[in-house]
Design a protein around this nucleic acid. Structure first.
Length: 392
DNA sequence: GCACATGATTGCAA
DNA sequence: TTGCAATCATGTGC
């Protein structure tokens, strides 16, 4: 990263090595002043000799004349157009949260969550990785920027001092000084631009690796799947968890709320498409929950949302019966005490109320035929349309 | 390598 | 905004 080493001589050359006697004389003199080849004594002696030289005034006027000519070229170099690329880089670094100083906690996360396709609730490993690496990039960027700025300040002071020194033997206008400072700044800003560009590239690479790989997925843990399935099958008549429930499920499963939403979206549609395929799973989970309910006893559930509604169980049971034939229950284990209770509850539930009102929870299960209406007589083996049969 | 499972994304409609 | 449906892309078991 030794850009300073290559830049400094370049600027010096650009500033002092210009064609013409003035620059040549000045450079040589100043160069020696800054160097260690000559003693201060001999240096002062030369200066004195120069100032007392009888030709000094004549030489000075010649220098002024030449200066007048070179000033024109200076004028031509002024007023660079604003750098659009630098602006873009600045904007991007600002947007990525690199330009502004690092904030702790939420501030640091903001950069990551503002990304397209990023999930606001996503605390995945990838995102924490991203934030950590972005933080590293930010630190490097700021330390390098600080270094360059300091170097720029030092060098500007250095050159200004040299020019002041030179102004004793040659005409150095304040305009020329400003011009020289401008050159230095432009050189340093070129370096800064390079730094910004590299930083942008690093951020883009990081993003493409960790954030934009949106389709990267990992299967949920067994626990997460179980939590979700338990809820789904125990609320089969209305598998639409509320926001609070989603949060609860997310917490239980160690996943995000949006992942819970995705999962339920996928599950509903896949269950609806192929109910038969999910029979075993349904049986397993409803069996589980009913056993759990039995073990806990009535009222054992803290949340009524987690308690399987009779309608759900009835539906699962009927699903089972219809797919396996009314005489047998296929894989559904009717031998356990819990399932006996379940059957009784189901039968009790299926009793039409005195007012003759339709079975409410089962009516809710119309989600399965909400958008793709199922025919009243379903094909053999497809028990997905039984709800309409029952509720009718 | 293939088929299937599954989480994520996208476009659309209500 | 939410959910559905289709689709994509990756994981997994064989």
């Amino acid at each position: 990263m030794d850009r300073r080493g290559s830049l400094w001589p370049e600027v010096v050359k650009d500033g002092f090595g210009r064609k013409g006697g003035v620059g040549a004389l000045g450079t040589r003199d100043v160069g020696r002043e800054g160097g260690a080849h000559h003693t201060m004594h001999s240096h002062g002696h030369r200066k004195h000799a120069l100032n007392c030289h009888r030709m000094k005034s004549a030489l000075f006027s010649v220098l002024c004349e030449i200066k007048g000519k070179t000033a024109m070229s200076i004028r031509h170099q002024e007023e660079d157009p604003p750098d659009a690329q630098l602006l873009r880089l600045d904007n991007m670094l600002l947007a990525e949260g690199v330009s502004r100083p690092e904030k702790r906690g939420r501030g640091a996360a903001a950069g990551a969550t503002a990304t397209p396709g990023g999930c606001p609730n996503d605390n995945s490993i990838e995102h924490s990785d991203y934030r950590a690496k972005l933080s590293q990039i930010r630190q490097i960027y700021h330390s390098e920027l600080e270094k360059y700025e300091q170097a720029c300040r030092e060098f500007t002071t250095h050159v200004t001092n040299l020019l002041r020194e030179q102004s004793r033997v040659r005409p150095v206008s304040s305009r020329e000084m400003e011009h020289m400072v401008g050159i230095i700044h432009s050189k340093f800003s070129a370096i800064q631009r390079q730094l910004k560009q590299s930083t942008c590239e690093a951020v883009m690479t990081l993003r493409s690796r960790l954030l934009d790989a949106r389709r990267k997925r990992r299967n949920f843990s067994k626990q997460a799947t179980e939590v979700l399935n338990e809820y789904f099958y125990s609320h089969l008549s209305n598998p639409y968890p509320s926001e609070e429930t989603k949060e609860e499920l997310a917490k239980k499963g160690g996943i995000t709320v949006s992942q819970v939403s995705n999962w339920f979206g996928n599950k509903r549609i896949r269950y609806k498409k192929n109910t038969g395929k999910f029979q075993e799973e349904a049986t397993m989970y409803t069996g589980k929950t009913s056993t759990a309910t039995m073990a806990r006893g009535p009222g054992g559930q803290a949340s009524c949302q987690s308690t399987p509604s009779p309608g759900d169980k009835a539906m699962t049971l009927l699903n089972c019966k219809l797919s396996g034939g009314l005489g047998s229950c296929g894989p559904f284990p009717l031998t356990s005490g819990g399932d006996m209770v379940l059957t009784l509850r189901t039968l009790a539930f299926l009793q039409p109320p005195p007012g003759g009102v339709c079975l409410q929870p089962l009516a809710n299960s119309s989600w399965q035929r909400a958008t793709t209406p199922q025919p009243t007589s379903s094909p053999a083996g497809d028990s997905g349309s039984f709800n309409s049969d029952v509720s009718n």
